[in-house]
């Protein structure tokens, strides 16, 4: 059996509040696939994703990506590892005052030195790739627009291009559609699904909307109170299993209480 792409073992995160945000979570990704993580707000979805690239430091456990154990990396090694992990955020997290192209190129920061990045001396190949990505996400011709002049959907497209600019081996998506309207959400999900397929990489997506998760994900992980309580293809996500994940689960179509986007 080949080495798994991502292997998480007994991952624990304790913020010191008395309740574990992540309680011994383990799962493995062996093939390029889109894995949806569902669960109520506060179930630990966001913490789980952030423990992978150590935006949140895990308390214990192991995260193996491409043969390296991420929690034990030095800060220098961690920065190198982070280049391989693209991340897409709910609030897009673009630098508002910079242009679309400047934002996309920040995806290369981990690969170039400080002065190279300050003077924008990126290789011709990087620039060509950035243009290609803008075209792929449907923003051809937008390179010199400022990020704060874009709509929510357009901003998230820039966010996707920035993540892909890293040429990542793994993509993390933290509620990428929670700030978008339903129709834009579907478009963004289609785009994300498309690029993940094209690049044959695994991706983990936190998602509130169970319907979207069912439609787009190859596999679904359910979290409840920091524990992994479900891990199977979407077809096995029955009403009874949803009750396991969310407690009382009322309406499949509307998704669980559409409230605070974590």
């Amino acid at each position: 059996m080949t080495e798994p792409l991502l292997e998480i073992t007994s991952l624990v995160k304790d913020y010191g509040t008395g309740r574990r945000a992540l309680d011994s979570v383990s799962f493995t990704i062996r093939t390029p696939q889109l894995v949806g993580i569902i669960g109520s707000s506060g179930a630990g979805k966001s913490t789980l994703i952030r423990c992978i690239n150590r935006l949140v430091e895990p308390t214990s456990g192991s995260v193996r990506l491409m043969g390296a154990d991420i929690p034990s990396l030095s800060s220098r090694e961690l920065r190198k590892m982070r280049r391989q992990i693209g991340m897409i955020f709910q609030e897009y997290n673009l630098v508002e005052r910079l242009t679309v192209m400047q934002n996309v190129l920040t995806g290369r920061l981990g690969y170039v030195g400080f002065w190279t990045s300050v003077r924008y001396r990126y290789s011709e190949e990087d620039i060509r790739y950035a243009y290609a990505l803008l075209e792929r996400v449907g923003l051809a011709g937008f390179e010199n627009r400022r990020a704060d002049a874009l709509s929510g959907g357009q901003r998230q497209r820039v966010g996707i291009a920035r993540a892909l600019m890293q040429r990542p081996k793994l993509l993390l998506l933290d509620e990428p559609t929670a700030s978008l309207d339903p129709s834009t959400s579907r478009q963004i999900m289609q785009l994300a699904q498309g690029v993940i397929e094209e690049q044959h990489m695994p991706a983990l997506i936190n998602i509130h909307d169970v319907t979207l998760a069912r439609t787009f994900c190859d596999r679904i992980i359910g979290m409840r109170d920091g524990k992994l309580v479900f891990d199977a293809p979407p077809a096995e996500l029955t009403h009874a299993r949803l009750v396991d994940i969310y407690g009382a689960y009322e309406n499949d179509e509307a998704g669980p209480r559409q409230e605070e986007p974590a």
Binding site: K80, R82, M87, L109, G110, R162
Partner: peptide, 25 residues
């Protein structure tokens, strides 16, 4: 803090985070 988090996630160094995420703001 969003852009700071995003740039850290790309593997950017401290000076790059200051220059590209903090300074413009």
């Amino acid at each position: 803090m969003g852009p700071v988090e995003a740039l850290r996630a790309t593997g950017a160094g401290f000076r790059q985070v200051i220059w590209f995420a903090v300074l413009p703001q």
